[in-house]
Amino acid sequence: MAERRTVRISVDGGTLAVELGAGGRPAVLAVHGVASNCRLWNWLALETPGVSLVTPDLRGRAGSYPVGGPSSIRQHAEDLVRVLDALELSRVPVCGMSMGGFVAVELAVRRPDRVQALVLVDGGFPVAVAPGLTPGEVPAAFAAQLARVSRRWDGIEQYLAHFTAANPLLDARDPLLRDHLEHDLADGRVLLDREAVLSDATDVLFGEHRWRELTVPIEFVYAEWGSGPGTPPAYSASALAEFRAVLPTLGRPRRISGADHAATVMTRAGAAVVGAALHDVMMRCPG
C-alpha cells in the first residue's frame, strides 16, 4: 500500500479529510466519484510512483461524512479551492473520475488559474439521460448504489462480497479494493450521506455544465462498457467526436478495453491507462 498521511482542511460546514501521497512534487489533485471515497485512487498511486496524489474525501463521504450543508458540483469545486489554498498549491493537474470529472471541469472553468490540466475518467462531459428520467426519479435510479447505506454490515468480508457481486470485473482478493472498502465503514455502517449522493447525481444528470469553456490541456479516458461486460458505454463514439470538435485542447480519447465504469480506476490495467494519460497531459502543461 502506498504511504500516505491525512490532513483536515476547513470548508463551509466542517472539515474535509484529505489524504496526501508520499513525496513532494509533482502534486496531482484526484477527485473521486459520487458514491466513492478518496481511496478510489489506490491503483493510480501504485501506477504513478513519481507523483504525489492529493485525494480528498468529498463532503458526505468517508472521512468527510460529517461535513454539513448542501452538496453540489459547484460546492465541491469551492471545497477543492480551499484544499489547494491550505496546501499552498498554486496550480495543479486535476484527475476526476465519474462525478469527480464534473467537479474537475467546474473547478477548471471557474478557477483556470488553479488548474494546469485535466484527466477525465468516464465523466466530466455530458452523459445521455435515460429516456423519461426526471429529477424526481433520481432516487429510484440510484437505489442500488444506496442500498449499502441502509443496512449494517457484519464486517469487511460481507461488504466486500456485496460490492464485488455488483461489480463483477473487480477482484475480491485485491488488497487495494479491501482497503478502499474498509475506508467506507465505521461500526458496520457505510459513511455515505444519501442526500449528498442524490443531490450530486441530480446535478450531474440535469445541471448546467460549462465544459465548452475549458481551455486547459485535457486527456479523456473511457470504459468499453457501462456496468458489466457487454453493457452500453457511458460515452458513444459520436459524443466523443463532438467533444473533440468543440475542444481543441482535448487529446484523442483513450478506451480501456475489457473494462466497465468501476474497472477504469479500480484495476491495475485500468489505472495504467489513466496513469499514462496523466503523464502525457502533464507533459503538455505549459511551463
Rank of each mutant, 00 (worst) to 15 (best):
M1E: 14
A2F: 12
E3R: 02
T6A: 15
V11Y: 00
D12W: 07
G13N: 02
G13V: 02
E19M: 13
L20W: 06
G21W: 02
G24W: 02
R25Q: 13
R25I: 10
P26G: 11
A27N: 03
V28G: 08
V28P: 06
L29F: 01
G33S: 12
V34F: 06
S36K: 06
R39P: 07
R39H: 13
L40D: 06
T48R: 13
P49E: 03
G50D: 12
V54L: 00
T55N: 01
R59M: 01
R61F: 01
Y65F: 15
Y65D: 02
P66Q: 04
V67P: 00
G68V: 04
S71L: 09
I73W: 08
I73L: 13
H76T: 02
E78S: 08
D79M: 03
D79V: 00
D79F: 03
D79E: 08
A86Y: 00
L87V: 00
S90W: 14
V92G: 02
V92E: 05
C95A: 15
G96Q: 02
G96K: 00
S98K: 01
S98Y: 01
G100M: 03
A104S: 08
V105H: 04
R110N: 12
R110A: 14
R110K: 09
R110D: 10
R111W: 03
R114P: 04
V115L: 07
V119C: 05
L120E: 00
V121W: 07
G132Q: 07
P139Y: 11
F142L: 09
F142G: 02
F142R: 05
L146V: 03
A147Y: 12
R151Y: 12
W153P: 03
I156E: 09
Q158W: 15
A161Q: 11
H162G: 12
H162A: 13
A165W: 14
A165I: 10
L170C: 13
D171N: 14
L176A: 12
L181K: 07
E182R: 15
G188R: 09
D193E: 14
A196K: 11
L198G: 04
T215S: 12
V216P: 03
P217Y: 01
V221R: 08
G230K: 02
P233F: 06
Y235K: 01
A237M: 05
A239T: 09
L240Y: 05
E242F: 04
E242Q: 10
E242S: 10
A245D: 15
V246N: 01
L247H: 10
G251P: 06
P253D: 06
R254L: 13
I256P: 09
G258T: 05
M266Q: 15
M266G: 11
T267I: 06
T267N: 06
R268C: 04
A269V: 08
G270M: 14
V273K: 14
G275L: 14
L278G: 12
L278W: 11
C285G: 10
G287A: 14
